[in-house]
Design a protein around this nucleic acid. Structure first.
Length: 482
RNA sequence: GGCGCGUUCGUCUAGAGGCCUAGGACGCCGGCCUCUCACGUCGGCAACACGGGUUCGAAUCCCGUACGCGCUACCA
């Protein structure tokens, strides 16, 4: 590699749904490689499957990509020198390439109907033969061809795969080879003229000057077909890198039944894009430093194909949660508050002291969506013991003495904060002789109804003197009747 | 069935012939901190799929087996 070509990578999703976590990881890798080399990251929409492609999906994918922080240099929304970036808008280009191939005799029309194809394939399988296309239409006589045409059959175009072996070098897996016999003459374009994946992909990657094709491992067996196409068109294939699949807990390809599988679901659940990108990067890659909380800059700087693993990785939500918690805690408190606010829903967060609440909660959650539920205790108008343990604490003889002392101590107070609350607790301890857990737990339950929670002085401060006194009074009244 | 790829603690991984009585991280268990929980911190449990080679020496190289995943579409 003496001629320094600018590195160009691409992410080429088909807009048939939300951005899947596995595809997101592919996008992350491509983005990282491009940035690592100071190159360009291109976004291309592969919408040649008219049945399944929708504009809504495309928009949603672009939105999620942007949310992840993976900025693209060229794409359908912003154009670029190699556009258009939607395959459905590049049909003329594919037609030209097809003509090139036709001129050199590398393609031929195939009139086989889908059911005929399937039937013959099953027969070959039953006989223990290769399921690849049998070459039925390979050497069709003109007469036969005309006969099919008059039947109204519209041909697909197949690529003629000659005997031999197709090898390529994978940046991650090393040399890989396929016997051409196992490939078979594959379809380049359908009867309706739409190009197939392998054909459009090669034409576009070449036109867009892609230098590194980085994609999932499920594409390795497509690669020899694509290499054959590059060669037939007189082009030099790009470098290929096939990254391991992401699996679910049962070691099967990650799918819906494994729970959340799309990026938008993780956004809604309160994960930070930086955490998700970091986590995804660490699936099948590791920093030489051994560090795991890396951040985008280090991810880009330290990336190295040599450190990409060759085996599939299980997507482990527990570790993602931990990592997200790390990112959440590293956030500036003001920023944390700002990011948590939307999770209170349309009604918004209760305005009073929300910042004090989020400050207290920053180390208590690992997803932003947990903030509202954990914050509820600060905005409640009544206190209900959460369980039998809480009720038992309220029934204890100490609880009444502590509660009464609390009311007595707080009655004359004109101001209120965590320090004053602490002072009150000290006085109660002095007056009743009760201390430690036996002193604090009854107050905690009287104020929050819960046996666990953030530090009590801060909690009491946020609640305010009046509310604290009311909750204690109501608690005493309730247990007084029993 | 064929072809391809893969196989280190439950999970993510380090490891590129001796540095490995296999290291780190998550989770789990326990200690500390502490009114509780969480955070933080300290410690513990836990793995080289199996069988043959090659070598003075193999988690690392070779072969085979098993298992897993992927592809085998006029889907991408």
């Amino acid at each position: 590699m003496t001629t320094e070509k600018k590195v160009r990578t691409r992410f080429a999703p088909s807009p048939t749904g939300h951005l899947h976590i596995g595809n997101a990881r592919t996008a992350v890798m491509n983005w990282i490689v491009a940035r690592h080399h100071g190159g360009e990251f291109i976004l291309r929409v592969e919408d040649t499957d008219r049945e399944r492609s929708t504009r809504e999906s495309e928009e949603s994918i672009l939105r999620d990509l942007a949310w992840l922080g993976l900025k693209w240099d060229e794409g359908p929304d912003r154009g670029g020198p190699h556009g258009p970036y939607r395959q459905s808008e590049r049909l003329d280009l594919y037609r030209d390439r097809m003509s090139d191939l036709a001129r050199s005799g590398r393609v031929y029309p195939c009139y086989c109907a889908p059911d005929e194809l399937e039937a013959r394939r099953q027969e070959r399988l039953a006989r223990g033969e290769s399921p690849a296309y049998d070459g039925h239409c390979r050497e069709l006589a003109d007469a036969k061809r005309r006969a099919y045409e008059s039947e109204g059959r519209v041909p697909a175009m197949r690529f003629r795969v000659e005997p031999g072996e197709t090898r390529f070098h994978d940046l991650i897996k090393g040399p890989i080879g396929f016997a051409n016999e196992t490939i078979g003459d594959f379809v380049l374009s359908r009867g309706d003229g739409m190009p197939m994946y392998n054909f459009a992909c090669v034409a576009d990657d070449h036109d867009m000057e892609i230098t590194h094709v980085i994609r999932g491992n499920d594409h390795v067996s497509n690669t020899p077909r694509q290499v054959l196409l590059y060669l037939a068109l007189g082009w030099t294939p790009p470098a290929f890198a096939h990254i391991p699949m992401i699996l679910g807990g049962d070691r099967e390809r990650l799918s819906k039944r494994h729970g959340a599988t799309s990026v938008d679901q993780y956004r809604a659940a309160g994960y930070l894009p930086e955490a998700l990108v970091n986590f995804l990067s660490l699936l099948s890659w590791s920093s030489e430093s051994g560090d795991e909380i890396l951040g985008m800059e280090r991810l880009v700087r330290e990336f190295d194909f040599g450190r990409v693993s060759e085996s599939p990785a299980v997507f482990n939500t527990e570790k993602l949660d931990w990592m997200n918690g790390q990112y959440l805690r590293a956030l500036d408190p003001g920023r944390f508050c700002e990011l948590a606010l939307p999770f209170f829903g349309a009604a918004g967060a209760p305005a009073a002291d929300i910042r004090k609440v989020t400050d207290l909660l920053q180390s208590a959650v690992d997803r932003l969506s947990q903030v509202p539920e954990k914050a509820a205790v600060f905005f409640a108008e009544t206190v209900v013991p959460e369980n039998a343990e809480a009720e038992a604490i309220l029934r204890s003889p100490e609880a009444r003495r502590i509660g009464e002392a609390f009311l007595g101590q707080t009655a004359p107070l004109v101001s209120w904060n965590s320090e004053l609350f602490l002072a009150v607790m000290k006085e109660i301890q002095k007056g009743t002789g009760i201390k430690g857990k036996n002193l604090w737990m009854p107050i905690r339950v009287m104020l929050t109804g819960q046996v666990h929670g953030p530090e009590l002085p801060k909690t009491a401060e946020i609640l305010g003197r009046e509310k604290c006194r009311r909750f204690v009074r109501e608690s005493l009244e309730r247990s007084g009747d029993g």
